[in-house]
Design a protein around this nucleic acid. Structure first.
Lengths: 192, 192
DNA sequence: CGATCACTTGAACACAGTCAACTAAGGTGG
DNA sequence: CCACCTTAGTTGACTGTGTTCAAGTGATCG
């Protein structure tokens, strides 16, 4: 699937379930006047499009070229019936998503722009560290606009916050979408 | 259980699962400097304290006198093993919570104070309408501070937004914790 | 009664948003 | 190959909205 591809939109019938093999996906919700909230990013190994109802509650688009494994919703349903392990696995995953969502509510409702960005970078690092070696490099597969809509800010404020962290010597920005964490301790303090 | 009782706090071991019979409960997360985010309110029939890990990810306190049905975590685990229906039911509930959480992210990240309060009142009404008759009266079992920490605002802004809605003729406030919705259509428009 | 608590209201301020200009990189077509 | 356009990102100046600080009201309770 090519970059920019839309998997499904908010309110559409949930006909397929996808498992991500490679690449990144953005989930988002829209307000009628165009304001957007990004509810999360998915990467390798994540499940996309599973809903416990007939409609999707968010939209999903590919941030880059993405490899996925697609199932029909009924097919997936059948798999769940046959293997109790899958049911268990789904519950575990959704629970983790819920904990993550609560963390995000705290971020959106109560953190300052700097704290938001610091938390975001640390969260990305933790994710990528799991796969990649323990490098201090963090890739940003999403644009500033995506980050802004994820953190409840504007792109300008996101950009200024990056600049602040860079000038403070906490991070480096060899390219706009590549972050090198220079002082993790301080970054963690700033994440509040 | 009396009003104000704390069921458990963030980070504590998840030893019990509760099912609410009557009363209201507040779930919240705290930042080290005291900033608080309320992640949700629970009422009759809701499940409290079920975690897919050994630690709670949030705190829970009673807003009023509350009747609960308490289970040991292991006991609850055993019930899940025996009745597949329960597993199914849990998955369904947590999925709904996740959809709700995504809705809340949109609210926290992208809505104005007025839109936040309007959305909040409509959500409460929907909840209470399910049980109660189709009355236009909405009870607020929580304080302004709780509402503020739920919507990512200050108590002053919440109070001003209530006043605005009242002066606009959209709601009435016979008492501070009792709202009468006078113009639901307009309230829905304001919720964005 | 006086004290406390929840809520409301007003005035001033500050922080993030808006608007605008600018840079750099990538892509297209003559 | 270069001129041109588009897009992503950064930076600056100004504004406005929600916060902060402060005062005031009304209800409840000892």
């Amino acid at each position: 699937v090519p970059a920019g591809h839309g998997f499904f939109s908010e309110g559409e019938p949930a006909d397929y379930v996808y498992i991500l093999v490679s690449g990144s996906v953005r989930m988002s919700k829209l307000l009628s006047d165009g304001r957007r909230q990004v509810t999360g990013f998915l990467t390798d190994g994540d499940i996309l499009g599973f809903e416990y109802r007939d409609q999707h509650s968010y939209s999903a688009e590919a941030l880059s070229e993405v490899e996925v494994c697609r199932f029909d919703a009924e097919e997936f349903e059948a798999l769940r019936q046959r293997f109790q392990g899958l049911e268990h696995c789904l519950l575990s995953r959704i629970s983790a998503d819920l904990v993550q969502a609560q963390e995000q509510m705290l971020l959106l409702g109560r953190k300052t722009p700097l704290e938001k960005l610091a938390s975001f970078l640390l969260r990305l690092r933790k994710r990528q560290r799991a796969l990649n070696s323990g490098s201090q490099m963090v890739r940003l597969p999403m644009t500033r606009a995506d980050i802004a809509d994820y953190l409840g800010l504007t792109i300008e404020t996101v950009s200024r916050s990056f600049t602040f962290l860079r000038k403070a010597g906490v991070i480096d920005l060899p390219e706009p979408s590549l972050v090198r964490i220079r002082d993790r301790e301080r970054l963690e303090k700033m994440a509040a």
